[in-house]
Design a protein around this nucleic acid. Sequence first.
DNA 1: TAGGTACCTTACTTTTTTGTCTGTACTTGC
DNA 2: GCAAGTACAGACAAAAAAGTAAGGTACCTA
Lengths: 131, 131
Amino acid sequence: MEKKQRQLPDSCGLGPALAVIGGKWKALLLWQIHQAQPCRFGELKRLQPEISEKMLIQHLREMEADGIIHREVFHQVPPRVEYSVTPEGAELDLALAPLAEWGKKHQERTEKAKAGAARAARTAAEGAARG
Amino acid sequence: MEKKQRQLPDSCGLGPALAVIGGKWKALLLWQIHQAQPCRFGELKRLQPEISEKMLIQHLREMEADGIIHREVFHQVPPRVEYSVTPEGAELDLALAPLAEWGKKHQERTEKAKAGAARAARTAAEGAARG
DNA sequence: TAGGTACCTTACTTTTTTGTCTGTACTTGC
DNA sequence: GCAAGTACAGACAAAAAAGTAAGGTACCTA
């Protein structure tokens, strides 16, 4: 364990929660494992080709240590490892749903605002050209 | 704006949400502003002496840019600035509640597990001493 | 002229997180 | 022998986030 996680200040439980799900790919991984359960290391790699092997395994190990996913090794050749979410992980996934909802809404608002700003800029430019 | 935020992969809206609340102190700040609304810069500083002025203002500005808090300047001497949460920020706070709940539960479980492990270790040591 | 308050800004350093690359152990197939 | 496939491990470097320290404004008091 070479982990010295960034100390998050605790505001009513949010600190620990963000410590668990805060990594760059963790939420995505939890969600994907929850969908495709049980799934293998290579499967996750294929599902998310952007993530490097090192980060994938690092996040998987941390999530396992945090008790939100389960890792099962089958002593075969070639090796086979399956990941699944624990009940605790499933709860976390559920708790994450409202946040995801908010994120989606926020994204839409942001895009609309950007489009609006672009339109306003265009209109202003036209006005300036006429004036 | 000198911001080049860490690009979070989008898993169904969680990416944008974590981008907004992911900073070390942001959740705490949102929560505190929501409690003590409206509150001044110096007030926040006193409420959370751990956070440096730089991070405080940086996070406040980012949260303002993300539209979750509102900043109002009163041109007085000495200067007076008040922060409050926007409706969007209030929604986010609400969406964060289940996550905070989970975090609290997770923390309790973790502590219990640690205590259990310590107890087991003690018992094992006693057993070994007897054996 | 110096010091105090409130709210920042900037330059610079440290810490943390993420990414790249190489290597392991084993088997199958050519 | 060599490549390919599986599931990793570890060294090192780049990038991002956070922290430190100092200064700046604008006005007031002594």
